[in-house]
Every structure is written in C-alpha cells, then in structure tokens.
C-alpha cells in the first residue's frame, strides 16, 4: 500500500484527487493540507511515501516546500502538480528536486500512474532535462538569468538531484544559506521569470 499526502489550497481539487486515489486499491491518502505551514508538520507526522504538491500555495511556493521536505525527510518523494505548461513544469520539478510533475489534466491515469512509478523509485524527469536547464540558464544571454558564481554551483548541484542539506555539505554552506541561493534561483528561473524578464527589460531599456 502506497501512502499519499496531498497539498493543494483548493478543496475541490483535493477532494477530486483524493477520490481518484482512494478508488485505487493500492493507494491511500493519509493526509491533506492547504498551506505550507500545515503541510510541513503533517508530512513530518505521517511520513507518506509520496507527497503531491501544488506549485502555488497561499503562503509560498510549492517548490520551497518540496526542497524543505526533501532535505528534512529524504524518504518522501514528491510529485509537483501544476496548472502551468510542460516547459514551466519541467523547470519547477527540476528546481524543486521533485521526482516528477503532473499537469492538471482531468482525463487519463497520468496522476495515478505517476504516483505508482515515483513510489517505486522512478525519476519521471528525463536525465537530459536538468542538463538543458543548466546550460540554458548559464548561457549569458538574458540579464534576468544572469546567475552569480554561487548560484551556478547551487543550480548544478540541484540538477544532480541534491537536497539543500547535501548542497550545504558539498559547498560548506549553512543549509539556510543554500535556501537563500535557491530562492534567488527560483526568482531568476522559476515560475514567473518571463513576466519578470519582460518587466526587467522595460525598466532597463534606457540604461542599456
């Protein structure tokens, strides 16, 4: 029996997914949360096999939550659930250190199938994707993704699948410091980077 924890701020979504999961004989929803604050404590208490996390939560980013869970409880594998597109989701999952992502599509057994696979230890993100993200992000073509030396190092280790704690050990940095770098990276590469990039360009157009 695979235990699953759901984090999504929309009750109707949690309800639907829980029904879907509970309809499967080998899967069981052991807990739910609507916020990061609730989620972290409840996951620590239930230690599920798989956590399904929405990327946007009212009190922060699902990515941060994912990295925190991975650092604190490396046995819990995470699946990101996203309403954004595949490109965005790929970034999200890689940066979050998740085992995979699921788009919010209603049909198909994609979610159930993905939960089963990551529970078995599969990584659903192709190995080439993190490499592409690193190479795209470290190509200095866009001022908004102009990463510092440290940010690049951290990104490369994220792409290798390391948790914040492991990155801290590798680079001899406090975990909290790593977290700050990750937040910086998420700002530069994450969810709304394109809007930010557009705004950035507009703001800096006359200074170039």
């Amino acid at each position: 029996m695979t235990s699953v924890f759901l984090v999504d701020d929309h009750e109707i979504v949690r309800r639907g997914i829980a029904d879907l999961i509970n309809a499967e004989s080998d899967l069981d929803v052991v807990g739910e949360a609507a916020t990061i604050k609730q989620a972290f404590g409840r996951i620590a208490a239930t230690l599920p096999d798989v956590a399904v996390l929405d990327v946007r939560l009212p009190d922060g980013s699902g990515l941060d939550l994912c990295r925190d869970i991975r650092s604190a409880h490396p046995t819990v594998v995470c699946l990101m659930l996203t309403g954004y597109d595949d490109d965005e989701a790929s970034y999200t999952a890689v940066l979050a250190g998740a085992a995979g992502y699921v788009l919010k599509d209603i049909r198909g057994q994609n979610l159930i199938d993905s939960i089963r696979r990551v529970a078995r230890g599969e990584i659903l993100i192709d190995r080439s994707v993190p490499l592409r993200i690193v190479s795209t992000a470290t190509t200095p073509s866009d001022p908004t993704t102009d990463l510092s030396m440290r940010e690049r190092q951290v990104l490369e280790l994220i792409a290798e699948g390391l948790t914040n704690r492991q990155i801290g050990e590798r680079l001899e940095l406090a975990e909290k410091t790593v977290k700050n770098y990750v937040s910086g990276l998420l700002g530069k590469l994450g969810m709304e980077r394109r809007t930010q990039a557009a705004v950035y360009r507009t703001r800096h157009r006359d200074d170039s």
Binding site: I12, G16, L20
Partner: peptide, 14 residues
C-alpha cells in the same frame, strides 16, 4: 479558473 475547472472535472469524473 484552472483549479476550479480541474476540480469540477475531477468530481464529474468520479
């Protein structure tokens, strides 16, 4: 919007 459509769709599916 997406969350609601998604949630509603899941309920319909159930």
């Amino acid at each position: 919007v997406i969350q609601r459509l998604f949630g509603a769709g899941l309920s319909l599916q159930a």
